[in-house]
Design a binder for these strands. Structure first.
Lengths: 208, 208
DNA sequence: ACCTGAACACCGTTCAAGT
DNA sequence: ACCTGAACACCGTTCAAGT
């Protein structure tokens, strides 16, 4: 055994574990150190503060996302695949989307770059790329708070067939998270395609 | 003066004030009571716990949203107006979107109903109404975490014209929150329209 | 170099006690 | 009925001290 029994990697791993099991809000500096068998302050030797820890957790969770190959497939297909990979990387980590939302810009540029390149190649102007990226980012990361709160199933069981809310309530119990996700991403991409179709000369293609 | 010098309404108002000024995360039960000139535990007489307080704050912030009149305008226009009103109700309250996201289903049904009715009338099936509502909700409420973290302006000032990320960085400084919002909502609604156009017989109109 | 312990300034919540 | 004070079990962070 060398002198140190802890490493930054071990700390970040343990933190990610805790977030996956119990959610972000129950990750504490003290509890983390205790979980590693150390004194309550041990983690502070490797990490300046909780914010830095959350940055490292965020970076780690998104590190292994496969980027588009640049094969010949149409941009909506490639964009959809990339979004699916981000979603997969986030799905298991309860509350991590919330963390990442604040931190992705600071810590993790390669996914952002891949999305932006796809959009730029598709024909969007630089300003549109900025806005379209923000839209996708917002939907994807906002999702992890919404899916935690499903639509209420009719409170007293009174399904009024003329009331849309009480019709949708029980129905939403049969819809899987997958259904919401597919509908959402498809609609976003359809909306983007519809924009390009309406003003196809907006973008300036690079290496066109 | 009557016996009581505090009311639930006063407490919720003060809480909403604090959230608007300093964000949700700096709202505390103790600090709130102190701000009202009472002892640290005073608020507990009117409110069971912090969760209940957040529910009341959420309900209050969304209470006065004007619902669609049911005039003859096309559904995308009415939907856009309704979304704008929700946005306006949220805009001034830092972090309140985050609170509401968890709580809207529990506390505030009339906005949800208005959105769902518009979508149902437009021709979407009940399942599609559920998913489209979730999409809109996610975007609208997720926004209040994203807009707090603007895209990074080129870190070292090196604007590489061939790199989409460094092109978009400085550009995003000139884009207003309004631009992102308009683009986002327009794209969502375009995506929904595109869905209806692709499968126009999907929905069953009520009172058609 | 790596870790600990005590201390400070906070939290949310409970509950007996005051008026 | 309305509010207070003390207590409990937590936080994040700092910093002198231990090995």
């Amino acid at each position: 055994m060398t002198a140190r029994s802890l490493t930054e990697a071990a700390i970040v791993n343990a933190a990610l574990e805790i977030v996956r099991r119990t959610g972000v809000e129950s990750l504490s500096m003290r509890g983390l150190s205790r979980e590693l068998g150390m004194s309550a302050m041990a983690a502070y030797y490797y990490v300046a503060n909780k914010d830095e820890l959350l940055d490292l957790v965020a970076a780690r969770a998104l590190a292994d996302i496969p980027l588009p190959e640049g094969d010949g497939s149409p941009w909506p297909v490639q964009l959809r695949a990339l979004i699916d990979h981000v979603d997969k990387a986030l799905r298991d980590y309860r509350g991590v989307g919330e963390v990442l939302l604040d931190r992705m810009h600071r810590t993790q540029k390669h996914v952002m770059r891949a999305v932006m390149e796809l959009l730029s190649e598709a024909g969007f102007s630089d300003a549109e790329v900025a806005m379209a990226y923000a839209l996708i980012h917002t939907y994807l990361f906002g999702r992890y708070r919404v899916t935690a709160a499903p639509l209420p199933v009719g409170d007293t069981g009174d399904a009024d067939p003329d009331d849309i809310v009480s019709r949708v309530g029980p129905l939403s119990a049969r819809l899987a998270g997958r259904d919401y996700y597919d509908f959402g991403v498809d609609t976003l991409i359809k909306g983007l395609e519809s924009r390009l179709a309406a003003a196809p000369t907006n973008g300036r293609r690079r290496r066109g």
